[in-house]
């Protein structure tokens, strides 16, 4: 905790990111409780411009844009964190096992990771989501699969360097099972860089899931989701630019908040940078 406070004090940009993120979290958690329903239609207010009652105006169906942005944010934030958690668990387990097993198994497993990494990750996510069928769950699954190889590769590097250390040899000599060694010794000692990678990945997970939503492969109407809401309102860009720009701007701010924090964390844990500073 003290370390975290020191980190934020030394990194004003990260502190700004944390504050921004806190504000966004508060808004999407509390906002929908007081705002009108994000799916209530009101044809009399179709494409209404921003006003005192509707700060961001209304969309083509007369739905309150601010309400949709706030409710959509719940989905988006849950998606970002959920997708990264999924990619983290799957990728790390795969990578640790590969690095620990070594030899032929490691070689085959890593060639598979190389092949996954040969796809631009958004392209792979799009192809997966298109195969599984358009839905928010499938989009999340697709993005998680596309992001997992990055964790696998990093986890393997960690496992390789840790599995030759004396305490792992000692555990092997004591007859611990592979699972116990990976779980008790390798993972806890190699988790630092993986967590930094995770914090950096939340931003791209949100961007990618929103991109799938934008392409019609994510959340399906009328569910509010930022990416899908941008594309739904593109047709009326001329008349009501706010309806498309508001959810888009929300994505930008949220991803920026995560990147500000992740970027500073990356610097913080970079040993070379650290010695330069001290």
């Amino acid at each position: 905790m003290r370390e975290a406070a020191r980190f934020l004090r030394r990194n004003p940009l990260a502190a700004f990111g944390a504050a921004l993120l806190a504000a966004i979290l508060l808004a999407v958690l509390l906002g929908p409780l007081v705002a009108p329903s994000p799916i209530a239609l009101d044809m009399s207010r179709r494409l209404a411009p921003p006003s005192a009652e509707q700060l961001l105006g209304a969309d083509f169906f007369g739905r309150d844009v601010l309400s949709r942005v706030l409710s959509g944010g719940r989905a988006t934030l849950a998606i970002g964190v959920g997708v990264v958690a999924l990619a983290f668990v799957a990728g790390t387990a795969f990578g640790l096992l590969s690095g620990y097993l070594g030899g032929w198994a490691d070689m085959a497993m890593m060639r598979f990771v190389d092949a996954m990494l040969s796809f631009p990750s958004l392209v792979l996510a799009i192809a997966l989501a298109a195969a599984l069928g358009p839905s928010l769950t499938n989009a999340m699954l697709a993005v998680a699969i596309a992001l997992a190889p990055q964790f696998a590769r990093l986890a393997r590097a960690q496992a390789l360097s840790i599995s030759v250390l004396p305490y792992v040899e000692a555990a092997i000599a004591c007859g611990s099972t592979t699972r116990a060694i990976l779980w008790r010794h390798v993972l806890p000692n190699g988790i630092g860089p993986l967590l930094v990678q995770a914090s950096l990945a939340v931003g791209s997970a949100i961007l990618q899931t929103a991109s799938l939503g934008f392409l019609g492969l994510g959340a399906q109407p009328p569910a509010p989701e930022w990416g899908a809401d941008v594309s739904a309102n593109l047709q009326y860009l001329r008349e009501t630019p706010w309806a498309a720009l508001a959810p888009g701007g929300a994505i930008l701010l949220t991803v920026l908040a995560f990147n500000l924090i992740g970027d500073a964390l990356g610097d913080w844990f970079n040993p070379r940078r650290r010695t330069q500073e001290s």
Binding site: L207, G227, V230, I251, L252, V255, L256, F258, D263
Partner: peptide, 13 residues
Amino acid sequence: LAGVSMPAFLLAV
């Protein structure tokens, strides 16, 4: 950082 946080489709729009 804002540049890498910007969804491509938003900048396009």
